[in-house]
Design a protein around this nucleic acid. Structure first.
Lengths: 144, 144
DNA sequence: ATCTTTGCAAACTTTTTGCACCAAT
DNA sequence: ATTGGTGCAAAAAGTTTGCAAAGAT
């Protein structure tokens, strides 16, 4: 549950360079995301942060995530119904969600490259993958 | 705003064959979907239905859409944040949404075929496209 | 000292649920 | 006459907002 300090520091540094204030809440959110190295819901981040700083409010988590997203530090995706999941922006990956068992697999975005090219050629559309998951059924559920 | 009667009748027929009751509310929802021939939010369907039947409640719209989905008559997709959109299940298409201007384009699912094959080969995953939109920027917004 | 950010409470949006009544078969 | 569907009101789930007070620079 401990985040690599230098990674967290680098991101805090980045905040300061952009003229953003570095608060307890913000450091804690960054900490949670770096520590998990994974996708977390706002609620999970909140729980995580409140272990160390019980006074930090859910609303602050959302506002912090907004700020971090504007700075290009975080992104969120939707895996299905329910809450969005947040992760560091450098962990670029597409999610594949089984609608039967809920299992989430990460797939390299390279798989989407051809689709991206076609959409650009045919429609002039610049795809930004990873915002929405790919929905379907995983191997186990599909063969039932 | 008038739906092709035979199309609506066919779907009502289908309900009856499956042992479902045919109510004013259900016929009205089917009517709205067939008439629009497009994707509508639950709220839009509700508004539409209430023009003819003001007593029909939003909750009934949701329950009806659930039933119709179980019967394979309707599906819903997510185009972004905000409400899901519902459409007849036979109108199978992938949505492409511009996150800048909100413009929605429908693209044939054939474009996704290769991706589908690779996911199946590499992961055993059976993709069900169309549940989530593809997000990105349309030609105009991308070239700004 | 200044001006952002926070905590709180309350609103908001979309969807779901419990329950008594109504209506389709 | 049955049973399933409906209307209503209320809650749930996820997220956003207004405001006064606290805190970072």
């Amino acid at each position: 549950m401990n985040a690599p300090v230098e990674r967290v520091d680098a991101l805090c540094q980045l905040l300061r360079e952009r003229g953003e204030r570095l608060t307890r809440a913000r450091r804690a959110v960054i900490d949670a995301l770096v520590a998990s190295g994974d996708h977390l819901t706002a609620e999970q981040i909140s729980t995580c942060v409140q272990e160390a700083h019980p006074e930090v409010h859910r609303a602050t988590i959302y506002r912090t995530l907004d700020t971090l997203t504007e700075l290009g530090v975080t992104e969120h995706s939707h895996l299905g119904h329910g809450p969005a999941v947040y992760h560091l922006a450098d962990e670029l990956h597409q999610h594949m969600v089984c609608e039967a068992c809920g299992d989430v697999t990460e797939v390299p975005t390279s798989l989407l490259r051809n689709l991206g090219k076609r959409l650009r050629n045919d429609y002039g559309f610049v795809m930004r993958p990873t915002h929405f998951a790919i929905v379907g059924q995983c191997r186990e559920c599909a063969t039932d």
